[in-house]
Simulated assay, not measured.
Amino acid sequence: MTKAELRSRILASRARMTPSDLLAAADALFAQLLLLLHRVPHEALTAYRPIGSEPGGPSLPERLAVAFPTSTLLLPVLRPDLDLDWSVYSGSMTRTERGLYEPTGPRLGVDAVTTAQVIIVPALAVDRDGHRLGRGGGSYDRALTRARPGATIVALLHDGELVERVPHEPHDRRITATVVPGLR
């Protein structure tokens, strides 16, 4: 299966999820994410604000900020070259022309990701070897080249998105952990 075919399959599956399915999945996923994050020491972590049917739900940044009030929470800001800048989450976000939500605080630069011990990334699918399928822009692959050695890189998925094989290329960066809701 090609990347395009796998993307299409996952996006179609996500499109079939109802609002109540998404809410239940977000709550279950957050509970699993908390279990992981309480085991991984961190002073700084990155996350993102999910949109549409992305795993984690739109309140993910706020929930992380409440759960880890002494940790610095960095959120991405998409640059025109599709690389990621970073900003500290302060509770204030704005919607961009691309439909993304970004923090409104000062930009810290592309290298700010190096301060994070935990990097939470969006994904459409992940295989058991840690190969991640994103939306195809390469933003997170570029950002992950800057991750500190030993950082825990976590992909959030819906049930059924941990797959046998993700097509990958040399520039694709692997993740080290996946979190799924585990709904039955």
Results as ranks from 00 to 15, higher is better:
D81W: 08
R39I: 07
W86L: 08
Y48A: 11
P55R: 03
P55N: 01
T114G: 14
E43R: 14
R128E: 12
G99C: 00
T70C: 08
R39Q: 13
A65Y: 05
R128K: 14
W86H: 05
L74I: 03
E54P: 02
P55E: 01
L22E: 11
R79F: 03
R63H: 00
R128Q: 12
A125S: 04
G52P: 03
P58V: 09
L23K: 13
L35M: 08
H131Y: 13
G52C: 09
T104F: 00
Q32Y: 00
L73P: 03
G91L: 12
R39V: 01
V113Y: 08
W86T: 04
V40G: 04
G109F: 12
A67P: 08
A26V: 06
L36F: 03
L29A: 04
L37Y: 06
T104K: 01
P61C: 10
P19K: 04
P80D: 13
P122C: 00
G56A: 06
D129H: 14
A47Y: 09
G99F: 03
S92Q: 14
L78A: 15
E102T: 10
T72S: 14
P50H: 06
L37M: 11
L133P: 06
A47C: 10
L84W: 02
V113M: 10
P19Y: 11
R49C: 14
A123R: 04
R63N: 00
P106I: 04
A112R: 06
V126H: 05
E97D: 13
Q117K: 06
A123W: 05
F68I: 01
L60Q: 06
F68K: 02
L84H: 08
L36D: 04
D83P: 00
V66Q: 13
V40E: 14
L29N: 11
R98W: 08
P61M: 09
L45K: 03
A116D: 07
G91R: 06
Q32A: 14
R49K: 11
D111E: 15
M17F: 12
A28N: 01
G57F: 10
T72C: 05
Q32H: 13
V88C: 05
Y101E: 13
D111Q: 13
L33W: 06
L45A: 08
P55A: 15
D129K: 14
S59I: 00
E54R: 08
T96D: 02
T18D: 01
A125G: 07
A31P: 02
A47G: 15
R132F: 04
A65C: 02
L82F: 14
Y101K: 00
T46D: 11
A123I: 08
S20E: 15
R79K: 13
D127S: 09
A112Y: 00
P41I: 03
G105E: 14
W86C: 08
A15M: 03
L64A: 10
V126Q: 01
P58R: 10
G91E: 09
H38G: 08
R39S: 15
P55T: 00
L78Q: 11
L35W: 00
L37P: 10
R49W: 07
I51D: 02
V118K: 12
V40R: 13
A31S: 12
V110Q: 15
